[in-house]
Structures are given as C-alpha cells and as structure tokens.
C-alpha cells in the first residue's frame, strides 16, 4: 500500500513497467520513451520527497517496510547476540537488546522494536515498552559500563505503553530511572531515531552523547493525534498538530534536540532499506570513533552538559 502522496509515483512506475513489457512483447524499441519517463519519475520522486509536509513525514516515519531496529541489528552490525529479560518481571519484546560488533568494536545495542507484520506487531506491542523493557535497558547499561562497551540505541516507538499493568509497575518511575542511568554511562552512547521517537518512552533510551535522526524520522513530546485530541478536541486535526509540533529531523536539528540528520535515499527508507542501513552504519561508525578519545568522566560530563543546556527562555521583562 503506497502512502497517499506516493500514488502518482507508483502510477508512473507501473506505467514504465507496462511500457517495458509491451516493448518486449512486441519487439519494438521504446527505450527513448522509457528513458524520458524514468527521468520524469526521478524528478517526481525528488520533488515529492524534498517537499514533504510534516504530517507526510510522520507517515513516512511509520511506513510499513521501513527498516526496524532488528533490521539494523542484522544489517548494520555483525554477530548480534540477543540477551533477554529484566531479572525481575519478565522479558519485554518491545525492546531488543544484546551484544554485537560494529566494525571492529564490540557494542551493546538496545533497540525499540516494532513489528514487521501484524503478528510481530502484536508480539512486540507495536514497539510500546512496559516497565520491564526499561529495566532490561538499565541492565544493559550496567553491562556496557562494566565491560567498557559503547552503547547504541535505535529509537522507534509510539511511546511507552499506557496500560494498567504498566502503571502499576511504575512506568513513570522506570522511565525516570532509565534517563538517569543512561546519563551516568561511563562509555560512549549514541542514539539513532530511526522511525518514531515517541515522548518519554523514547527519551528513556535517548540520553546519549550524540543523538542522530534519519531524515524522515520524527521525535516529539506527544503524538500528533494525541496533541490534536487535547488542543483541538479532535484527533482528526493531527495534520495541524504535526505542523505545530515541529517534530521533523531538521526542526529538531534547529532546536538542538538532535546533533545530526542522516539523509535517506530519495523515496524514503522503506523504498531502499539496504542503502538506508548502510548510511546509518556509516554514521554510527563515525560517531563512535569520534567519541572514543574521551575518557569516562569526559563522556559523562559531555552528556550531562548536552542535556542541561536544552531549552529556550529569556530574562523576564
């Protein structure tokens, strides 16, 4: 299913395919026409994706087929060894964690995992973690510190799960503790917002030295739908809310919330997964390398200062 604004692109792709097939069947040379159409397609793609509205980017960030944390774990890292469980309540499938190699280095990866199909989505609770998931993340932070391994957190969640058990088990408490625990890491930490950075549930694993974001990913204090429901009393106003919230990669770069935007292939990450994963890998390698010279204290201090400085205000009149 194409996204609504992808329809003209898809139509043109189909037309080109049909023309190719026709040329083959009839044994005629339509290569000039096809080349023209392909150029038009390329222009259309670029025009569309260079001019996405914020709401359209929200849709790309959530698009089916967009690489998930697990896709990066398999494609950008080597030898991923999953480690399970929080040692208290269970194992939360909405967060995948473990050891892996990134280039020559051993790292700890904590990723938020949405499903790649309906069945997996149900299993993963659509990437919405319970307290158990954040407890698992904190256990991984301990492990990383103990063995001096850099931490990488691919972020992709609509938010921490709002449910009865989650509240009873202290959802707010574990998010706060995870923020604190991550801020105290003695190793390099890099977060990459790969899809949706949904509020506190994302920030709980987002207190990194360097925060990267894919071009069409979003990071927000509240989902556009919930924001619209509160401010306009109508979830259908989500498009307006998405504009107001300034939740796109380049908005966040301007606000200082993220440090670097990783460009996606034209057409979005879901259209060229391999190239997207390659670019994310390159970015992660460069960022880890840049942080390696810093010692433990410097890493913690840099992280603290980074977050301490965020916000905009002025002297009172």
């Amino acid at each position: 299913m194409p996204l609504p604004f992808e329809k003209p692109i898809e139509d043109l792709e189909i037309k080109i395919e049909e023309m190719r097939a026709y040329a083959g069947e009839q044994g005629i040379d339509l290569s000039d026409e096809i080349t023209l159409l392909e150029q038009r397609l390329e222009r259309l793609r670029r025009d569309t994706f260079d001019n996405l509205t914020r709401w359209q980017r929200v849709q790309v960030a959530r698009a089916a087929g967009r690489p998930t944390a697990m896709d990066y774990l398999q494609g950008a890292f080597d030898g991923f060894t999953e480690l399970h469980g929080d040692r208290t309540l269970g194992d939360d499938p909405a967060i995948v964690a473990g050891l892996a190699r990134l280039g020559e280095r051993s790292v700890v990866v904590i990723g938020q995992q949405k499903g790649r199909d309906t069945k997996e989505n149900i299993h993963r609770n659509f990437g919405m973690a319970h307290p158990s998931g954040y407890r698992k993340a904190m256990r991984m932070f301990d492990l990383a510190d103990k063995f001096g391994l850099p931490v990488i957190t691919p972020i992709d969640t609509p938010g921490a799960y709002p449910g009865i058990a989650a509240e009873e088990q202290g959802q707010a408490w574990v998010i706060a503790e995870s923020i604190r625990r991550m801020s105290r890491l003695q190793v390099p930490a890099i977060s990459v917002v790969i899809g949706e950075g949904g509020s506190g549930g994302a920030l709980a694993v987002g207190v990194a030295n360097r925060v990267l974001i894919l071009e069409n990913a979003i990071y927000s204090v509240i989902s556009p739908e919930s924001c619209a429901a509160i401010l306009w009393r109508d979830a259908a106003e989500a498009e307006k809310a998405a504009e107001a919230l300034k939740l796109t990669a380049y908005d966040l770069l301007e606000l200082g919330v993220v440090d670097r935007v990783i460009d996606e292939p034209v057409g979005g990450a879901h259209k060229d997964r391999e190239e997207t994963i390659r670019r994310v890998r390159e970015a992660m390698l460069a960022e880890v390398a840049s942080l390696m010279p810093l010692d433990r204290q410097a890493l913690e201090a840099q992280r603290r200062e980074r977050f301490r400085a965020l916000g905009r205000f002025r002297d009172a009149a």
Binding site: A176, R180, S199, V207, S220, V221, D251, F307, G311
Partner: peptide, 22 residues
Amino acid sequence: GARMQEGALSLMQMAKTTVALE
C-alpha cells in the same frame, strides 16, 4: 506533564532536570 507548546524542548526538560539533580 510536559508542555506541548514547546514541543521536543519540553520533552528534553525531563533529562535536564534529571541531570541537574546529580
């Protein structure tokens, strides 16, 4: 909770207040 009108900057206050307690 966090103030929607300041977007992700409000979200970041969660981390800011946390590190200031250190």
